[in-house]
């Protein structure tokens, strides 16, 4: 935690040096970009090295979402996968509506899983030709770097720190921090209505950092008698249900997963940050990245009838309303 403010300071200095280029990075800096280790599910990963990556990065990393151009050609990595006959994928099994093991069917399901199946269909011709590896948040990068998995599809945020460690596809989802509160609550979003309200965040999360910067008078710090920061974003819903807090601030993609489990809560207002999720692979597996980008091109195609929109409607639309389509891909 101690390193965070220091980084922020550095981010500010370098940001000013490159003021024109980095206006957005400076204003949103601490929240959107330099939150190096932060992730969708609110658990921070990576150590000191990752953090330092950010400070070095800040000046020359303006567009971490820009990926390699798509291609449906094969390459050494794809040949290997075809030889193995299975695509090994690191996924989450804890994020409702994204990557979650349904205890009734014992199988994984969610928005991320649908995408995995589309990739497997494209490369191997079979959506089920997948070995799923449930990987804890902190193991994702290592799993990629040590070739334990071919790809990771796990609400993984693309950012400047991470593109030094793994390669990302184009963005397949745009998320942002948002407020979650009971339906009848006077809280209307990340604004003055939070004044005096008790707010839960995941320890060390972007949401926490955002409140630390501007809390609108919300009570969100731990005290001796009340704990308001929790290990995992889902723990916030527990605290909300038993009345220990009045609202939750978290990534809206995951907040949608919370709202889907409790019909009495809903997302409030608009997301106040912007983050993009991407499919991660090992650096250097360019053929695979290009191939996945091609899969994503197909996945997005057909407007309202696209596979992307189908998946959105199946898993997210009921709780994460108002999304009309996938984020526009950026290439470098």
């Amino acid at each position: 935690m101690a390193k965070k403010p220091r980084l922020r300071g550095w981010g500010g200095v370098t940001g000013m040096a490159a003021a024109c280029v980095l206006t957005a990075a400076v204003t949103l800096g601490p929240i959107a970009y330099s939150s190096g280790g932060e992730d969708g599910d609110g658990a921070r990963i990576g150590g000191q090295g990752v953090g330092q990556g950010v400070t070095v990065q800040a000046a020359d990393c303006t567009d971490p979402e820009a990926s390699l151009t798509p291609s449906s050609g094969d390459g050494p990595t794809i040949d290997k996968i075809k030889q193995a006959g299975k695509l090994v994928v690191g996924v989450d099994q804890n994020s409702y509506r994204w990557g979650y093991r349904n205890p009734a069917t014992r199988s994984l399901e969610g928005f991320d899983i649908d995408l995995v199946r589309a990739i497997a269909q494209n490369i191997l011709g079979d959506p089920d030709a997948v070995i799923y590896r449930a990987i804890p948040t902190n193991q994702r990068i290592e799993a990629i770097q040590k070739d334990k998995v071919d790809i990771v599809v796990r609400t993984m945020t693309i950012n400047c720190a991470r593109i030094k460690q793994v390669a990302f596809s184009t963005a397949y989802f745009q998320a942002g921090q948002q407020v979650l509160a009971p339906k009848g609550s006077p809280i209307t979003g990340y604004n003055d209505t939070l004044k005096g309200k008790k707010v839960c965040t995941a320890t060390g999360s972007t949401a926490y950092d955002a409140l630390k910067q501007k809390s609108f008078g919300a009570v969100f710090e731990d005290t001796a008698s009340a704990k308001r920061t929790v290990p995992n974003q889902l723990d916030c819903l527990v605290r909300l249900q038993i009345g220990e807090v009045d609202a939750v601030v978290t990534d809206n993609a995951l907040a949608a997963g919370q709202a889907a489990q409790d019909p009495a809560v809903e997302l409030k207002g608009d997301p106040f940050t912007t983050e993009y999720y991407g499919v991660a692979t090992k650096i250097g597996k360019d053929d695979l990245v290009r191939r996945i980008n091609q899969v994503l091109v197909d996945y997005r195609a057909d407007g309202k009838k696209s596979k992307w929109m189908q998946a959105y409607r199946t898993w997210l639309a009921s709780d994460l309303k108002g999304i009309s389509g996938p984020p526009v891909p950026k290439y470098r």
Binding site: G37, R44, G47, N94, N232
Partner: peptide
Amino acid sequence: ARGAVLTKDGT
């Protein structure tokens, strides 16, 4: 928990 809760140092 399936990896949902990590130690303080995150390792």
